[in-house]
Amino acid sequence: MAQVARDNGVGLGLLHYWRRQARAAGVVEELRLVPVTVVAEAEQASQTAGMELIVRDVTVRIRGAIEADHLRTVLAAIRA
Rank of each mutant, 00 (worst) to 15 (best):
V58A: 12
V39Q: 13
H16C: 01
P35S: 15
S46W: 03
V55P: 00
A77Y: 04
G64R: 12
R61W: 05
P35C: 15
A76E: 12
V38I: 12
G13V: 09
L14M: 06
V55H: 11
G11Q: 04
A40W: 09
L12D: 06
A77F: 06
L31F: 14
D7I: 03
M1P: 00
W18E: 04
Q44C: 05
V55Y: 12
A80E: 13
A5V: 02
L31W: 13
H16N: 04
E30G: 08
E41N: 07
T48R: 13
I66L: 12
A42T: 12
E41W: 03
V36D: 12
V58S: 11
A5I: 02
T73C: 01
Q44N: 08
D69R: 14
D57G: 02
T37N: 10
E43H: 05
S46P: 00
A42Y: 05
R63H: 15
Y17Q: 15
A24P: 00
L15Q: 04
A76T: 11
V58N: 07
E52A: 13
G11A: 10
V39F: 13
R32I: 13
R19S: 01
G13I: 05
D7S: 09
R20K: 15
R72W: 00
A42Q: 12
G9Y: 08
G13F: 06
A65L: 08
I66G: 06
E41L: 10
A65H: 06
E29R: 15
R56I: 04
V27T: 10
I54H: 03
T73V: 03
P35T: 15
Q3K: 14
L12N: 09
E43N: 05
I78Q: 00
R79N: 09
V36M: 15
I62F: 06
E43K: 02
R56Q: 11
A22T: 00
I66W: 05
V34Q: 11
A45F: 05
